[in-house]
Amino acid sequence: MPDFRSDTVTQPTAAMRAAMANAPLGDDVFGDDPSVNALQSYAAELLGFDAALFAPSGTMTNLIALMSHCQRGDEAIVGQNWHTYKWEAGGMAVLGSIQPQPLANQPDGSLLAADVQAAIKPDDPHFARTRLLVIENTTGGQVLGLDYMAQMAALAKSNQLACHIDGARIFNAAVAIASQTQADPYQVARQLVSGYDSISVCLSKGLGAPVGSLLLGSHDFIARARRVRKMLGGGMRQAGGLAAAGLYALQHHVHRLQDDHQHAQQLATGLQQIVVDTGLETQFSLQMPQSNIIFCDLDAALAGHFVAELGKHQVRLTSSTYQQSGQSKSRIRLVTHLDISPAQVQAMLACSRDILCNY
């Protein structure tokens, strides 16, 4: 049965493994690994930046970006639920001595422009200096559109702030937008990031590489970032095998993200129908996905039963608990990816129907 925990669980395809096995190698800390250099050059040109830097993880590339844009005591504006603030172990504060200024996310995942403007500190020694605006796209699987991304970049520039994108799934956002307009997802991705000073792109999520993320920016910015990467222990030696996987992913796995989005839609639609058929609407609700991530909110008792029974069928997913109006609730996350097939979606739905019908 399928593994819905995350799109990080993907396995390299046979063609990707062949690219890894045949990759020429050098020493990336010395800057002479040809496969790493090829990946960095390709990605920078693809998204319209001067240069790129390969690192082991998206958490690291985000932290490198924050520490390259900000000095000790500076402030970065972030979303309350965004990865850079909530899911990266406080790295910006602990390791970068950067003060996060978290703002409430709107239901569509965005930050209000008025909230961002109001959060920018005046030039006063009593306050941390606001230096950076961070945007995340996709955010919890939700897609921030072209107009919004352009608006946030312009807002940052008008206030003399640098702006960084946590674009771990930026190609999911691009594919979702492109599918509505019959556009080229590569071109849409370039439009989404236009006007930003830097972006972190994950290669090991939906794109399917085994390891690695890229940080992109200007030549001067990447020169600073390379120093920070070394400081954080992110310099790798013969990293070309990993880089070759990332290059293959960028060249061959972007358009196919639409398959993951379609599978998520099929899974969510099927689950919603099962909930209606079983009369569990007050205990089980879900958000229709915009990309490849589905969130389901269940009463705690139902969630415990549902997750335990799925586990007996080797279905893997993630869940967490929270309080709402004094009641315990559970949120289940289901993520589709290149190792989730249409047959596995149907098997998941059949299993879910059996469990919920007998609850």
Rank of each mutant, 00 (worst) to 15 (best):
Q101F: 10
V116A: 14
V307A: 12
T181N: 10
V345D: 01
V188W: 03
Q151P: 01
D7N: 09
T59A: 15
V211I: 04
N81T: 13
R131E: 03
Q101Y: 13
Q262L: 11
A154S: 13
G246N: 02
A189C: 02
Q99Y: 09
N358L: 09
L302P: 06
L267E: 02
A44K: 07
W87T: 11
T61D: 13
S320Q: 14
Q265H: 10
A343H: 05
W82Q: 09
W82H: 11
V275N: 01
E309L: 11
H255V: 07
P34Y: 13
L257M: 06
A119I: 06
H219S: 02
F49D: 00
A23I: 00
N81I: 06
A21V: 05
L250N: 00
D115S: 14
Q238I: 06
C351G: 10
D28T: 10
G90K: 01
S198V: 07
H69Y: 04
A19D: 07
Q287W: 08
G279M: 05
N62W: 04
D277A: 12
A347P: 01
P24T: 15
D27V: 14
G326D: 04
A301R: 05
L144H: 12
S110V: 09
M149P: 08
V188Q: 07
G109P: 09
H255G: 04
Q160N: 15
L63Y: 00
M152P: 00
V211G: 00
D33W: 06
Q266S: 02
L338A: 15
M16A: 04
A55K: 02
W87A: 15
Y85Q: 08
P289S: 08
A118T: 13
H313P: 00
S97R: 15
S57V: 03
V335G: 05
C202Y: 04
F284C: 06
S179F: 02
Q346P: 02
G73V: 03
T282C: 08
A114W: 05
G326V: 00
S213D: 05
